[in-house]
Simulated scan of single mutants.
Amino acid sequence: MHTIEHDVERPDRAVVEAFEAIPSTIVSDVTGNVGLTMDSGIRPAFEGVDMAGTAVTVTASPGDNLIIHKAITVANPGDVLVIDCNGYTDTGHLGELMCASCQSNGLSGIVIDGAYRDKREIKEMEFPVYGRGVNPQGPLKQDPGSINVTISCGGVSVNPGDIVVGDDDGLAVIPGKDAQTVLERSRKKLDSEDATREALEDGTYLFEMNGYDKLFEDMDVVGPEDSIQ
C-alpha cells in the first residue's frame, strides 16, 4: 500500500528559521533528551552543517529511489526530506544530481536512514545531507513508497510537519505542534548557558554550581581499602 499526501500542516516559517540559530544539543536538552534525538549512526556528509527545516517524510524500499524523486517534487522551499530506507547501506539512494535539484528548489536538506553517494560533490555544494553510510552503488527505480506518513528515522518517530534541526553533533526532531514552546525554552536555555559560561570563566566548578557535590555526598563511594583482596 503506497500513500502520497500532498498537504502538510507546517509550523510558521519564522519559527522554523529561528531554529537555525539553535544547536541540536539545546533542542535535545529542552525536549527531555530521550526519544527526539536521532542515533549517532546518522552523520552529516561534511562538517560545518547548520540545518533547520520542516519534515517531508518518505518511506523508500531499500535499494530503490523512485519515491525519493517524487518526494522532491512534493516538497516546498524550507522543507527537509526525511527518508526511511530501513537503514540499508548497500546502495546509494541519492547523490549529487538529486541534491542539486533539492538545492535549486529551496529545500533545506536531506536526512536518510540509509546510504547516499557523491559525498565529495555534496560537500562542495554545501548542501546539508545526513545519512547512515556512503555507497557508490546506484539504486533501482521500480518500487514506489509513501510520502508524508509517520516514519521511523534514526530511531525517532517523525511526522510530516515536524521540525528537524541538524549540526555537526547530529539531529534533533521537534513535533510541529510544540515548535513555539520548544523555541522559547531553547532561547532561555541558551541565555542560561551564557550566564554559566561567565561563571566558569571566573573559576567556578559545574560540580558545585549544579549541586553535583550534594549528589556525590549522598552516594556510597568506596576506596581501594574496601576492595576484596
Rank of each mutant, 00 (worst) to 15 (best):
T31Q: 11
I110F: 08
G41R: 04
G145W: 09
G114V: 06
Q142E: 09
T91C: 05
A45S: 14
A199I: 14
G35R: 07
I163V: 15
G106W: 11
S101W: 06
A18T: 08
S152D: 13
V34S: 14
M125F: 07
Q142D: 04
G166I: 02
F19I: 03
F127K: 07
N148D: 09
E96S: 09
S40A: 13
I122P: 02
E126H: 13
P139R: 09
A100N: 07
M209T: 08
R117S: 03
V156I: 12
T73I: 01
D213S: 12
S28R: 14
V58R: 05
G78Q: 05
N105I: 09
S186D: 04
D118I: 01
V58T: 06
S104V: 13
C99D: 11
Q229H: 12
L171E: 02
I68E: 03
R43K: 15
T204W: 05
Q137D: 00
F127A: 04
V27A: 01
G78R: 01
V74M: 01
F127I: 06
F207I: 06
P44N: 04
N148S: 08
E208Q: 08
Q103E: 08
R132S: 12
P144Q: 06
A52R: 05
V15E: 02
E193G: 00
N105Q: 09
G154P: 07
E5V: 13
V74E: 04
V221G: 09
V80C: 00
T3Y: 10
G114F: 00
Q103W: 00
P11I: 02
T204H: 11
P224G: 03
K214D: 14
Y116G: 05
D90P: 01
T204R: 12
A60S: 14
T59K: 15
Y205W: 11
G95R: 09
I26S: 05
K177Q: 14
G133I: 13
N105W: 06
A60W: 08
S146L: 01
D191L: 12
D167Y: 00
I174V: 15
T25S: 15
V74R: 10
V182F: 07
A115Q: 00
G155E: 00
S157M: 12
V15K: 02
D79E: 04
N86T: 12
Y116H: 14
D178E: 13
S146A: 08
I112W: 03
D162Q: 06
G155W: 10
P77Q: 07
S186N: 11
K189S: 13
V80F: 09
A55Q: 09
F216R: 13
S146Q: 04
V82N: 12
L140R: 09
R197C: 11
T150K: 13
G32M: 11
A21G: 00
M1D: 15
I147P: 08
M219S: 04
L36K: 15
V49F: 01
G170M: 00
V74G: 10
D202M: 09
N210S: 13
A52G: 13
V8E: 12
S28V: 05
S186G: 06
P160K: 03
T91A: 00
S40D: 05
D118R: 05
D90A: 15
T25P: 01
K177N: 08
